[in-house]
């Protein structure tokens, strides 16, 4: 009887979580879709002119901005994260793993405004002095995001790597393979789906991150032509303009949300498909 109640209770919680998600999605679509229809999908996502108070609703610069920043974050964060994962899984002495792993997980708990602040104080001036340009740039946002996705990449891919049966490693070493060959030819292969999942989740996090990006990206409404150019992402655009947007402008921001929603949905679908393909 009590079990039944708990079961029912949990079901209701789960359903309401799902329900509110659906409602939010629905709300965004209802608010955003009419504008996309009115402007035309092509003009919305393929036009470069964004002047919402004067009736121009092109978000291409923001789409490209988000892509550029995310790509850079994946290169930095993904590369560093996988290297860290390999080090922790195979080469680091055990005592150091006991210290490093919790530290890395701690990184995930730091509020994004702190990352943004560090970016403004340290990274942006450094980029300005070293490479020139305003400092507020694709590069700055990519590096900050890269650091922010490290915990996601490392935690998930390390779990995946540690779940690979020891017998694979033994089998490979017994054939005279080096530890490095064993790692990338067998262990990484076997953990592939988990590693890809970690990268895609990290990508989702990078696409969705707002605060830290606003602080370091410069937010100019231009298609970025170099890593040193300032950039505005989809999320930044919503956050920066929602305070004063009204009418079609506001609906255009919701429509931007729709585009973000679709991007994330596509990413997750790709993740699911890659994992299924393996079997």
């Amino acid at each position: 009887m009590k079990e039944k109640l708990i079961e029912k209770g949990l079901l209701i919680v789960a359903l309401s979580a799902l329900g509110s998600l659906l409602l939010i999605a629905l709300f965004i679509f209802i608010e955003g879709m009419p504008l996309i229809v009115k402007v035309g999908l092509k003009d919305f996502i393929a036009s470069t002119h964004w002047a919402p108070t004067r009736g121009s609703f092109g978000i291409l610069p923001m789409i490209l901005g988000s892509l550029a920043v995310t790509l850079l974050a994946l290169i930095f964060g993904g590369g560093l994260g996988l290297a860290g994962t390999m080090f922790l899984a195979e080469f680091a002495p055990r005592w150091s793993v006991r210290i490093l792993k919790p530290l890395i997980e701690l990184l995930a708990g730091i509020p994004s405004v702190v990352y943004g602040f560090m970016g403004v104080v340290v990274l942006v001036p450094w980029i300005r002095q070293t490479f020139g340009g305003p400092g507020f740039s694709v590069l700055a946002a990519g590096i900050i995001l890269g650091i922010m996705i490290l915990p996601t990449v490392i935690a998930i891919s390390l779990d995946a790597l540690n779940a690979v049966p020891l017998s694979y490693k033994e089998g490979s070493l017994a054939l005279g393979a080096t530890r490095w060959q064993t790692l990338y030819r067998v262990q990484f292969r076997a953990a592939r789906s988990g590693i890809i999942a970690s990268l895609i989740l990290a990508m989702g996090r990078a696409v969705g991150e707002t605060m830290a990006v606003i602080m370091v990206a410069g937010n100019a409404l231009l298609i970025p032509t170099s890593p040193l150019a300032p950039v505005r992402t989809l999320t930044s655009n919503i956050a920066l303009e929602m305070g004063y947007a009204a009418g079609d402008h506001q609906r255009a921001l919701f429509a931007t949300g729709v585009v973000l929603f679709v991007i994330i949905a596509v990413l997750n679908t790709i993740a699911l498909l890659t994992m299924r393909e393996r079997k």
Binding site: S172, A174, G176, T178, V186, R189
Partner: peptide
């Protein structure tokens, strides 16, 4: 590495790679 190439090993549970 040379030693393990010359002296091969098969384990208790078949550990074919995936």
């Amino acid at each position: 590495l040379e030693l393990r190439k010359r002296v091969g090993m098969v384990f208790q549970r078949p550990n074919a790679f995936p």
